[in-house]
Design a protein around this nucleic acid. Sequence first.
DNA 1: GGTGCCAGTTACTTCAAGGGAACCGGCCTT
DNA 2: AAGGCCGGTTCCCTTGAAGTAACTGGCACC
Lengths: 126, 126
Amino acid sequence: MTQTDPAPLPADLLPADCPVPSVPVLGSRKWAWRIIRCLEDGPRRFSELRVPLAGITAKVLAESLRSMEQDGVLVRTEFDENPPRVEYALTPLGRTLLGPMDAMCAWSRENLAGLLAARAEHERGH
Amino acid sequence: MTQTDPAPLPADLLPADCPVPSVPVLGSRKWAWRIIRCLEDGPRRFSELRVPLAGITAKVLAESLRSMEQDGVLVRTEFDENPPRVEYALTPLGRTLLGPMDAMCAWSRENLAGLLAARAEHERGH
DNA sequence: GGTGCCAGTTACTTCAAGGGAACCGGCCTT
DNA sequence: AAGGCCGGTTCCCTTGAAGTAACTGGCACC
């Protein structure tokens, strides 16, 4: 199971002098941001997550959740019911990500248009 | 040249309801954070960037720089000198990234230890 | 004429993540 | 007995970024 192996942190994680070159939990995992957002308001079960995360497959969602659980940003709780129920919730550590994420989200809201314009211009001009 | 095609923004970029699921410029490009940090204090030339970005190859650096130029976060300036000189500098748009990046960096400084602990515990306990 | 510098390029390979489709096990209802 | 629900797993394929290594072009200096 490759996805349950703790992914090695990128070698360049903390280069001693300059602050973080990448964001551990959020980098290189396409759905991580959205998953965290979906859990912001409380625990959700597997199938509840699949709805807002339109397009994600069970496989990828399961993989992402396991890796984020490993990182300690969320917890998986299995209830002994039938049909089975499994809930995912942010940990306190996971909640601390919301602040920085908001900063990034604000940046995107303000600057995404500019970024797309830059790309478009680049495509036309050359 | 695949890397000069404007990469399509991820389809899930702005899902209307919830703020940005990923960071355009910084996601999925391993060296982007560090490159921006290296330009924070002023323009640098190609070979100057290779020093602090220990381990990066000319190819990857060139690719990254071109894609970031396309996104409008930096500019490439070619001087007609010899030997050739080319400088890269952050644009105003690029500078606006520094704030959110600082927030993320602060998060990492504060919580990286906890994250590694969570991983380690996961590895032991299961 | 050979060497070096700078800023790359080109071709090839590797690797991790994502996507698609099929399948599973337990229990419940019809 | 058949089908549905939930929460997955398994296998296989594709993709995109990164890494490796060799090579380029123009000029300048020795």
